[in-house]
Amino acid sequence: MKDYFAEQSQEEANKRVRKRKMLDKFFQGAMFLCTIFGIVMLAVLLIYVLQEGLAWLDFDFLTSYPSRFPEQAGLKSAFVGSIWVIGLVALISFPLGVGTALYLEEYADQNSWFFRILKLNIANLAGVPSVVYGLLGLAVFVELLNFGRSILAGAATLSLLILPVIIVAAQEAIKSVPDSLKEGAYALGMTKWQTIKAVVFPYAAPGIFTGVILALSRAMGEAAPLLIIGAAGYVPFLPRGPFDIFTVLPIQIFNWTLRPQSEFHHVASAGIIVLLVVLLTANGIAIILRNKYQKDID
């Protein structure tokens, strides 16, 4: 009888193992198909954009102002406006995001209720839709602080959008620093700030810079928050300061897609190609910086 029950138990165990293996293979196949579907759709979209826009992409397109004539339309003011906005976003978000991450990981009491609430809210803010940040920017920066519909208002709004992403990325990079390195620095008589400056930040720099540049890339592709705060769809001049009105590449592309003439749709595709090149360049810079600092650490 014992042998019979042992055989039955072994047979049931084998059935469960076979069932788990089948479910594992099914899940693996489903995820593979989802990945292939996403890649194929992305490839189709890229091919369509390239076919529509390459013929319209030339030097004059990059150096001309927007126009109501598609043959004369260009990206000059939108490109310069994007540089203005992203430059200010970097100046605002980098010190605030990295400084917040350093405070949370190195100075804050991680067992306190304040730390737990702050960490939870930062994680939640990273998933808030960008439109909500646009409404916040409109209420605070445009109306309350009276920045107007300016570059500074747009940069401050986008900084709020990417700050949670930068903070989380910087926190993870700082957590990766081995405790033995910090303890060794303390043993040599370094203060906490000297340890952060000479040990923690250099070791965490690859992860921090990667997170910051990827967050800036996201900000560069955002249009909804800037539309809400009142970024212009047509700017026939270059901005001269942070309080000038502005437009950026995504908004200019969006404006062209709304035109009824089919030629403007080709112009919009050319603008998408330029935006893709800029974003890929930013991601390439992130990879180069990460590899460079990683080699220095090794």
Results as ranks from 00 to 15, higher is better:
229 I>A: 10
249 L>Q: 10
288 I>S: 08
228 I>C: 12
252 Q>H: 15
201 F>K: 14
247 T>W: 09
198 A>T: 15
237 F>L: 10
202 P>V: 03
244 D>S: 13
285 I>A: 15
224 A>R: 02
220 M>Y: 00
219 A>S: 06
198 A>R: 14
247 T>Y: 07
231 A>W: 05
221 G>A: 08
241 G>E: 13
197 K>Q: 15
227 L>V: 14
223 A>L: 06
207 G>A: 00
263 E>A: 10
231 A>F: 10
208 I>S: 04
205 A>C: 10
238 L>F: 06
214 L>H: 03
223 A>K: 03
254 F>C: 08
243 F>D: 03
248 V>L: 12
262 S>Y: 06
248 V>E: 11
223 A>W: 03
212 V>R: 00
209 F>L: 15
223 A>C: 10
247 T>M: 12
225 P>V: 10
283 N>Q: 11
230 G>A: 07
244 D>Y: 07
217 S>Y: 02
244 D>N: 12
264 F>L: 08
282 A>N: 05
235 V>D: 07
228 I>F: 13
246 F>C: 07
230 G>H: 04
249 L>W: 05
257 T>S: 12
221 G>D: 02
239 P>F: 08
265 H>A: 11
263 E>Y: 04
291 N>C: 07
219 A>F: 00
195 T>P: 05
244 D>F: 08
286 A>E: 13
265 H>S: 09
243 F>S: 05
285 I>G: 10
260 P>I: 05
270 A>S: 13
216 L>G: 07
267 V>W: 06
207 G>I: 01
285 I>N: 06
264 F>N: 05
234 Y>G: 09
289 L>V: 15
209 F>K: 00
290 R>P: 03
216 L>H: 02
274 V>N: 06
278 V>G: 01
256 W>G: 07
288 I>V: 15
212 V>L: 09
278 V>N: 01
227 L>N: 08
274 V>S: 08
276 L>Y: 04
289 L>W: 08
206 P>G: 01
217 S>A: 15
243 F>G: 02
205 A>H: 02
229 I>K: 04
198 A>E: 14
235 V>Y: 09
264 F>A: 06
259 R>W: 04
266 H>F: 09
285 I>W: 04
212 V>D: 01
244 D>P: 06
200 V>M: 06
203 Y>K: 08
242 P>N: 02
251 I>Q: 12
290 R>K: 15
232 A>C: 09
283 N>D: 14
247 T>F: 12
266 H>W: 03
255 N>Q: 14
207 G>W: 00
